[in-house]
Computed example of a mutant assay.
Amino acid sequence: MGLKESWNKFFNNHSETSDNHWDPELNTHYFKTTKDKAFDTVLRYFKQQSGCEINSTSERHGEISVNYKGKRRAFVIATVVMVKPFKTAIDFSITTEGGLFDLGFSHKLITKFYADLQKEMQVLDVHSQV
């Protein structure tokens, strides 16, 4: 991680995942499941989390938006996309409220969400062929 990446990680109020992220923890996670099952799992996960209030859902677009009211307030968008049968990608975009930076809070929240979802669904290696 270079100086620019370190700066962005701690002195920014937004983090999001992508396929080739500079930080391996924020690479898109793929799960061995269908889009519908993954969407239902993510939706159920946020409904069960204290401090999470679901704003809206679009099963057609695979998006769930959540107001997170934990240690810090944040706006979360979870996107669920089926890449091929039984290979579904889940991405997160998180923007924290208040202040100009979040000291890595949005980054840590994404890694927490992924860790929790891996307990519910089987994660695939990014390079696996299913």
Rank of each mutant, 00 (worst) to 15 (best):
V76Q: 00
S50G: 14
P85L: 06
V66S: 00
S50T: 11
E63Q: 11
K69N: 15
G62H: 05
Q49F: 09
A89P: 00
T95D: 09
F105K: 07
T79S: 15
L100G: 03
S58Y: 03
F101P: 01
S56E: 09
R73F: 14
I77S: 04
T96R: 02
Q48P: 01
G51S: 05
F92S: 02
V81Q: 15
L103C: 06
E53M: 02
D91F: 04
I77M: 07
Y68R: 09
G98T: 08
S93M: 08
Q49C: 14
R73E: 09
A89D: 04
E97S: 13
R72H: 15
A78Y: 04
I54A: 03
S65K: 05
K47W: 01
Y68S: 09
F105E: 03
T79M: 12
D91Y: 06
A89C: 11
T95N: 01
S58E: 00
A74Q: 14
V80A: 07
V66N: 01
I64W: 04
V80H: 07
I54L: 09
H61D: 11
Q49I: 13
V81G: 06
A89V: 09
K47A: 03
E63F: 04
K71V: 14
F86G: 05
G70P: 03
Y68K: 01
E53K: 10
G99F: 07
A74H: 14
I94K: 02
V83K: 15
S65P: 01
V76N: 04
H61F: 14
G51I: 11
S56T: 05
